[in-house]
Amino acid sequence: MMSLLDTWYVATTLDTGTLEGVISHAQTRRTPMAGYALTTTGPRRISLDHQQPGLASRGKPLDLGTVFELRLWDLRDSSAIDACEIRWAHATGSAQVEIVSTSTEGARPCVAVRRTYLSADTPVYALEIFVFDRYGNAMPHDQLFLTGLE
């Protein structure tokens, strides 16, 4: 049986709309991050190295000129309630989306459900987010990854 976690959803538009600015913002977090980049040569699993500028895919620097969408998330324990994901889309902008256990400014109440997927026989953990409409109905809203694709 699935359990619902009472949490808070916070989405913040970042001041930077450039890929380089988003990477710089992610590096200030000083937490291990991984994710994926959609590139003109296909999707790439990526990691963020806090010692080197840029992104790496399979240990090699990724050509940022090929990236048109990016999702990076803090790597957490699969039992974590809090989550953070940084998103960027070319010509659209960037955002930081967080799930937090206590209310903060701009937070929206929500419930989260833990999800587990398999990626190349490796479990990937995520939180699926539901918000409520004015009648109290739960609606799927977002999904944030906790682990995987490292």
Rank of each mutant, 00 (worst) to 15 (best):
M1K: 10
S3C: 12
L4N: 13
D6Q: 15
D6H: 14
D6F: 03
T7H: 06
Y9A: 02
Y9R: 09
T12D: 06
D15H: 13
T16M: 02
G17C: 09
G17Y: 08
G17P: 04
L19E: 13
V22Y: 06
V22C: 05
S24E: 13
H25R: 13
Q27N: 07
T31C: 02
P32A: 01
G35P: 04
Y36S: 02
A37N: 00
A37G: 09
L38W: 09
L38G: 08
L38Y: 14
P43K: 00
P43A: 03
P43M: 03
D49Y: 05
D49V: 02
H50V: 07
Q51V: 12
Q51M: 04
Q51R: 09
Q52P: 03
G54I: 06
G54K: 14
G54Q: 13
A56W: 00
S57V: 02
R58D: 15
G59T: 13
P61E: 07
L62I: 14
L62C: 14
G65E: 14
G65L: 02
G65P: 08
T66H: 07
F68C: 02
F68S: 11
R71F: 04
W73N: 14
D74V: 09
R76K: 12
D77W: 08
S78L: 03
S78Q: 11
S79E: 12
A80H: 07
A80G: 03
I81F: 07
D82Q: 12
A83D: 02
E85S: 06
T92Q: 04
A95M: 07
Q96I: 15
Q96A: 13
V97E: 14
V97K: 11
I99F: 01
T102V: 15
S103G: 09
S103F: 09
T104W: 05
G106A: 02
A107Y: 10
C110D: 06
V113M: 07
V113R: 11
R114D: 11
R115A: 11
A120V: 04
A120E: 13
T122P: 01
T122H: 00
P123E: 12
P123F: 10
V124Q: 06
L127T: 08
E128Q: 12
I129A: 10
I129S: 09
F130H: 12
V131Y: 00
V131R: 02
V131T: 15
F132L: 15
F132C: 12
D133P: 04
D133N: 11
Y135S: 15
Y135H: 12
Y135A: 15
G136T: 12
A138L: 14
D142K: 05
Q143M: 15
L144V: 07
G148M: 01
